[in-house]
Design a protein around this nucleic acid. Sequence first.
DNA 1: CGGTCATGTGACTGGGTAGTCACACGCGAG
DNA 2: CTCGCGTGTGACTACCCAGTCACATGACCG
Lengths: 226, 226
Amino acid sequence: MPKPTFFNLPPEKQDTILEIAIEEFARHDYGVASISRLVKQAHISKGSFYQYFEDKQDLYLYLVDLAIEKEVEFLLAVEPPESQKGFFPYLRWLFERSSDFVTNDPRWCQLLYRASYGDFPFRDEVLHRTQLTSRSYLQDLVKAGIERGEITEDIDTDLAIFAIDALWEGSRYWIPRKLAIDFKNIDREDITEDKIKFVRQWFDGLTYILENGISTKKHRKTPHQP
Amino acid sequence: MPKPTFFNLPPEKQDTILEIAIEEFARHDYGVASISRLVKQAHISKGSFYQYFEDKQDLYLYLVDLAIEKEVEFLLAVEPPESQKGFFPYLRWLFERSSDFVTNDPRWCQLLYRASYGDFPFRDEVLHRTQLTSRSYLQDLVKAGIERGEITEDIDTDLAIFAIDALWEGSRYWIPRKLAIDFKNIDREDITEDKIKFVRQWFDGLTYILENGISTKKHRKTPHQP
DNA sequence: CGGTCATGTGACTGGGTAGTCACACGCGAG
DNA sequence: CTCGCGTGTGACTACCCAGTCACATGACCG
C-alpha cells in the first residue's frame, strides 16, 4: 500500500503518477520496468517517489490491485445475463465485456497479463491476487455448467477452466499487437469502430469454438478416450 | 551465430555451456537473464564467453534456433499419421508429441515459450523465427482441414490457428508449474509415469475441446453469428 | 517573527549488468 | 629455444538500477 503521503497528493497528481506507472508496467515485465525511468517521465524526484511508495514492489502490487478492481468494475458495468439462462450465454457476456475491456483499457489489461505470465520474484504473491478473482470465478461458472448438464462431464473441470483462461490470456496478449496498439501513446481516436468490431468478432469466434469446437459435425472420428 | 572459437571447443565443454545457458534463459526472460550469472555457473571467465559469442543476443538467438530445431526433431521422431486421415488425427498426434516434448525437454520448451511471450528488445527478430515454423505450419494444416470439410467454415482460419496456438502455449507455460518442474535441477527420475500420463490426458482433453467444444450436444442455444 | 512539520529534492551508495582489454599461458612450427 | 597464434582470464569501464539521506522549501500556527 502506498504511504499516506501519496493519498494526500492532489488527485490529478496521483493520476499522473499512476498513468505513467501503468504505462511502464504495461510495457515491461516487473524486472525490466524501471523506477528511474518512471520518475523522469512523471517529473518527480526519486526522493518523492520513495515518500509515496515503500518500494517498487509496493507500487506494483498496488497497481495490480487497482487493475483487478478496474477490470471487475468494467466487466460488471453491463449486467450479466441471469444465471438461469445458462453457462454459454454467460460466457458470451464475459467474453464480450472482456473484449471491450481490451480496447477500452489496453494498458490495465496488459499489466494484468504480465501479472499472470511475467517474470519476477514474489510470483506467488501476485498469482494469489490475480487467480483468486478470475480462476475461482470461472471454477464456479464451470461447475454450475456441468451440474446443469450444459458442459460435458467427459472433460475435467480444471482443463475446461484452463482452456477458457488460456484463450482469454492469449487474446489479451495478441490482440493489442494485432491491432498495433502502442502502450506508449494511447490515442482514443486510434481505437476505431473497426477495431472494436474486430475484437468483438474475435471473442464471438472463441465462444463458438469453446462451445462447439472447430469441427464440422459430419465426421466425428476421434472420440475422447478418458 | 557463435564464433568459430566456440565450435573449436571440445563437445562436452560446448554442451556444458549450452546446458547452463538454456537453464538461464528458461528460468528468466531475456532482459532478466544474466551473462555474469551464466559464466559463474559454467565456470568460464567473462573473457572466454565473449570469445565464444558476439554478445548476449548472439547466444540467445542461437539458443532459440537450437530449440526450434530440437522441437521439430523431437516432434518428427514419431511418424505423423498420413495426411489423408484428416486434420483431427493429425492434431492429436501433434499434441501428443508436444506433450512428450514438455516432459522430455522442459527447459527447451520453456525457452521457446519465453521467446514468444517474453519481454525484450528485438521482438520481431525472434517472433520471425518462432512463428515462421509453427504458425505457418498450423496455417497449412487448418486450411487443408477446411478444404476437406473437417473444420467449419464459420470460423476464421486465423482464429482457429490462434486457438490452437494459445492452448499450446498456455500448456507449455502452466504444465511445468502444475507438475512443479524445477528448471534448476532437472531430474529425470522426477518425471514419473504419473506425470507423463497426466500431460497426455491434458492434451487429449484439449484435442477433444478443440474438436467438439465443451458443451454437451443437447442444448445448442448460442449459434455463431458471423 | 520563529518554529515545526509535511513534503520535495537530487547527489549519492552499493550493487548488478554487458562488454572490453592487456596480459598470461601453452603448444606447435621453424 | 623462440616466435606466433589460438585460447583463457579477471580486473576494469561505463552504465543502469533501487533505494537513502541530508538538506531545501514552504505552509500553517503560536
